[in-house]
């Protein structure tokens, strides 16, 4: 809940500081899947809120669907909008490190969100979820609840650093527990792919005790396939990122969906707020700000349920 504290401070800071026309550029991936959609939702809402609270703060929000376009967007922002600060979620680390470094060198405040750059020390502020913790938290739950010899299938996301870190964390947590991962494949953070994959695994394995889907979109697909096969009683499914539907099932103590792991898309709000505060108040906001993943359980589910979020 540290995050919420910061946000509140940020707001207070903003309203207190005298008017100064500053422009903040925000560049994030387009809403191509649920989590990114929520990211967009939170970014837009935060921009709206901050603009209202402080009319002298200007925002430039761009969304991109590939690294190349993101580089162009950044160049445009610097060239045509003369931004004073940049909040960026790099589409990929390597290709964006150089361009962002140049922007930082020109004296622009840089906040990097979620995906670290290939070189350290470029950004003024780093706000990120913890992918290792995301996988480890889920893995720990599996190790704690499942018996030795239990059979688990793992649905990975799109092959990427994020995905590798999550899976590494998950595997590390399982180590020594005697829980066996019988199959692991890419569901690409996509419901349809996950549905097909789960159907095939259900045909292939007579016994599955639990499913870890590294994202709630995939969990939805997996659950539908399990439901179709009539094997709901046999296993539980743990997704990730705290989708509304999943949290709802948890707070209703659904045995198939016992827990979930957070990876809050609202981290973008934190990043924007902290940047705005850093710009306007001069308060020391630099450094790293890592938001660890939390386990959502029936007990605390109410705290993670956001009625109007699209995710």
């Amino acid at each position: 809940m540290k995050k919420i504290l910061i946000a509140t401070t940020a707001l207070m800071g903003l309203t207190a500081v005298p008017a100064l026309s500053e422009t903040i550029g925000i560049s994030i991936p387009a809403a191509t899947h649920g989590w990114a959609g929520a990211l967009n939702f939170h970014a837009e809402r935060t921009v709206e809120r901050l603009s209202e609270a402080n009319p002298d703060l200007e925002f430039v929000l761009t969304t991109t669907s590939d690294p190349g376009q993101q580089v162009s967007d950044l160049e445009d922002m610097v060239a045509t909008r003369g931004i004073d600060a940049l909040v960026v979620l790099p589409f990929e680390s390597e290709p964006l490190t150089g361009p962002i470094q140049r922007i930082a060198d020109s004296g622009v405040w840089v906040t990097v969100v979620d995906r670290g750059l290939a070189q350290e020390g470029i950004e003024n502020l780093y706000v990120a979820g913890d992918n290792d913790s995301f996988g480890r938290t889920a893995g720990q739950y599996f190790a704690d609840t499942l018996d030795e010899g239990a059979k688990v299938v793992v649905m990975r996301g799109i092959a990427s650093t994020v995905d590798n870190e999550r899976v590494a964390g998950f595997e590390a947590a399982l180590e020594g527990s005697g829980v066996e991962v019988v199959a692991m494949d890419h569901g690409n953070w996509n419901r349809d792919t996950a549905f097909n994959l789960m159907q095939d695994w259900l045909s292939r394995f007579p016994e599955i005790d639990a499913v870890w889907a590294a994202d709630d979109d995939m969990a939805v697909g997996a659950l539908a396939a399990i439901d179709q096969a009539g094997r709901t009683e046999e296993m539980f499914v743990v997704g990730g990122a705290g989708m509304k539907e999943m949290v709802d099932r948890i707070r209703n103590s659904d045995p198939t969906v016992p827990v979930n792991v957070t990876y809050p898309p609202s981290m973008i709000s934190t990043a924007i707020e902290m940047t705005a505060l850093g710009l306007t108040s001069g308060a020391p906001m630099s450094g790293e700000f890592i938001i660890a993943s939390e386990l959502i359980t029936p007990e605390n589910a109410e705290d993670f349920y956001f009625e109007d979020s699209p995710y």
Partner: peptide, 11 residues
């Protein structure tokens, strides 16, 4: 469809 779904999922 992205716009209809507000970037998320229509259920």
């Amino acid at each position: 469809v992205t716009w209809l779904a507000d970037g998320g999922t229509l259920s």
